[in-house]
Design a protein around this nucleic acid. Structure first.
Lengths: 146, 146
DNA sequence: TAATATTATGCAACTCAGTTGCATTTGTTT
DNA sequence: AAACAAATGCAACTGAGTTGCATAATATTA
């Protein structure tokens, strides 16, 4: 997508990173996804191939510059997403379905603010929820009612 | 501690698990800690030694029965804590200091409730915060002002 | 109590995400 | 173009967590 590429270039420039081949296609892959992606998922969505190590190193620099967040999800692998749906200190919540295992970005939900003990300074907050997504929840009800 | 052992026995009975040597000392180690512990930290705090695999398997059964929670913390290793400071659907928040890397259990903070989209059913919520703990925060101010 | 079944623990070898060090390529600057 | 810096690739490694199977401990029943 042309607009995605433009956005990727703009983001990389903002982060002070050269708009290289690998960075461009990695960012584009993440920008066109509606959920956080693992290193492997990103690789599969990229048009071209790149070395595993390069992918990890690129992810690190993207996270360092704040262009990308590592989502807080309980899994052995890390999942990454562009930070454009988060405010400075409050990230959008994630909902992980315990049945279909999909991760849903709750970008419409207003992240709650919490009163911290005296002296603490909040830099980033992440809220994670587990349960049944609407699809699996209604499916379960149907099964029960029949 | 005698009372800790009693509590461990009571918890294991409630979870339908035999009060074995390893389970007892693992649970006691976690009950006397004020923060989530990794498998290795638990092993070090146990009076006796136990095989790595046994520790992992025991952690799994403790989590399955709900006696113990795996804390949602961004690290390569998992951290575990007794679930007695959490309510059924809302876990107590964690604050991870970006300077001293300590994890602080905010058991006094009331976990916020969030309005989910239609049809979703929440089973567990975890809130994680990163920033400066009160110690590191005030230390930084002093450095700056001098 | 002895015999038997069930559950818990230990050991060795394995898997796999992520890392390190170094060589090579690509892009930038003068 | 020459020279430098940054990005990418490759091979070998690290370390958390797992698997399969053997042994030990506990519970059950005769």
């Amino acid at each position: 997508m042309q607009s995605t590429d433009k956005k990727a270039v703009e983001m990389l420039k903002r982060g002070g990173l050269r708009p290289t081949r690998v960075r461009m296609s990695m960012l584009s892959a993440m920008l066109t996804a509606d959920e956080p992606l693992s290193r492997e998922q990103i690789a599969r969505r990229m048009g071209e191939s790149a070395n595993k190590v390069t992918l990890y190193r690129t992810l690190h620099s993207l996270v360092e510059t704040g262009l990308v967040h590592a989502a807080l999800i309980r899994d052995r692998v890390q999942f990454y997403e562009p930070s454009h749906h988060c405010s400075e200190h409050l990230c959008h919540p994630h909902f992980v379905c315990t049945t279909c295992h999909k991760t849903i970005c709750l970008t419409e939900v207003v992240p709650p603010t919490v009163v911290l003990p005296e002296g603490f300074r909040l830099e980033r907050q992440q809220l994670q929820m587990e349960g049944l997504c609407s699809t699996c929840n209604t499916a379960e009800h149907e099964t029960v009612s029949v």
